[in-house]
């Protein structure tokens, strides 16, 4: 029933908007969802960076004497100088005797790196292709056919296919997740370009003789920033989940590298007896992704209200 009130509220909202327009980013930073998600995410980031100083041991260190210990077990270590030391494995150990707490904390590095890398690379590539597609008509047909084709392959399968071609590794995994994401960014950018192109202010700019590249950078590109930040956030969340799934299936990052998916993959066989190997990394994983998603919702509501009406 918005149309009913439009007349009445319009004048009200104009007055309100006039003081706020420029501080849109500040509004976003004041959104409770953004704050909530951001705080958790920052905490995760600190954990990832400070992992070596948070009472961890080498996450790849195998200790046959300390295999499959439940959380809270006290473990005796033999140090390099031959002395022994004791410490409590608060999250237990895995079947190779590696300390799960250390692996989980270090695992944050892999997940966050994958999330950031995938979203930044996908958005960058997608934006370039999307601009070309939205602005150069003959290229549009070809590009969109390829994008439609790529989108016809379910994302995780496409990633699996690419991983199988290139062999496992962090960079492989990142690119395997980027490829299915790119068409989504392309579509978003292209649709914005096509819509904004029709705006009278763009036509006005054309009629005062503005060259195409200025038109692009001054009038069209700024419209893509907010939606791309929002989309990039959600892509990061999905990428972290995909990496975890691939590693969990044993076809992602090499198993000795501590990633949350790998820790869970390792814990699968003895899950009935030692569920902690799946539980702890699962909690960290879910919490991180949740934080990003909540932050994404908040960013979308504030930066891109048109889109928030849609989804």
């Amino acid at each position: 029933m918005s149309a009913i009130t439009e007349e009445a509220v319009d004048s009200a909202s104009i007055a309100a908007a006039s003081t706020k327009r420029k501080s849109l980013w500040l509004v976003a930073l004041r959104n409770p969802n953004v704050i909530f998600g951001g705080v958790i995410l920052l905490t995760m980031l600190m954990i990832a960076i400070l992992a070596p100083f948070l009472g961890t041991v080498d996450p790849q260190r195998i200790d046959p004497a300390a295999r499959n210990k439940k959380p809270g077990t006290e473990i005796t270590y033999r140090l390099d100088d031959g002395q022994t030391a004791k410490r409590v494995a608060i999250m237990g150990t895995d079947s190779l005797g590696r300390d799960v707490y250390s692996r989980v904390l270090y695992g944050a590095r892999v997940s966050l790196a994958v999330g950031v890398a995938v979203s930044v690379i996908s958005v960058a590539i997608g934006m370039v292709i999307g601009l070309i597609s939205g602005y150069i008509r003959w290229a549009d047909g070809i590009i969109m056919r390829i994008m439609d084709g790529l989108m016809a392959i379910p994302g995780i399968l496409l990633a699996i296919a690419l991983v199988s071609i290139w062999r496992a590794g962090l960079i492989t995994v990142v690119f395997a997740i980027v490829v299915p994401d790119v068409p989504r960014v392309v579509r978003l950018v292209r649709s914005i370009v096509l819509t904004v192109r029709e705006e009278p202010y763009v036509e006005g700019a054309i009629s005062v003789g503005t060259p195409t590249w200025i038109l692009m950078f001054r009038h069209i590109l700024p419209n893509t920033v907010a939606p791309l930040i929002v989309q990039g956030t959600f892509l990061a969340a999905a990428a972290i989940l995909t990496e975890a799934a691939l590693s969990f299936l044993g076809i992602g990052i090499p198993p000795e590298i501590p990633s949350w998916g790998n820790i869970m993959a390792e814990g699968r066989t003895l899950f009935r007896v030692f569920p902690h190997n799946i539980l702890y990394p699962g909690i960290f994983l879910a919490l991180t992704v949740l934080a990003i998603n909540i932050m994404g919702d908040g960013l979308r509501d504030t930066l891109d209200p048109k889109m928030s009406k849609k989804v």
Binding site: A205, I206, S207, R218
Partner: peptide
């Protein structure tokens, strides 16, 4: 055409969409 663009100017219907809100 570009040099001739200057010679014809147009004012559109919708005053709210005729100006780039960021400029």
């Amino acid at each position: 055409l570009r040099p001739h663009r200057r010679r014809v100017q147009i004012v559109f219907q919708d005053p709210y969409r005729s100006m780039n809100p960021r400029i």
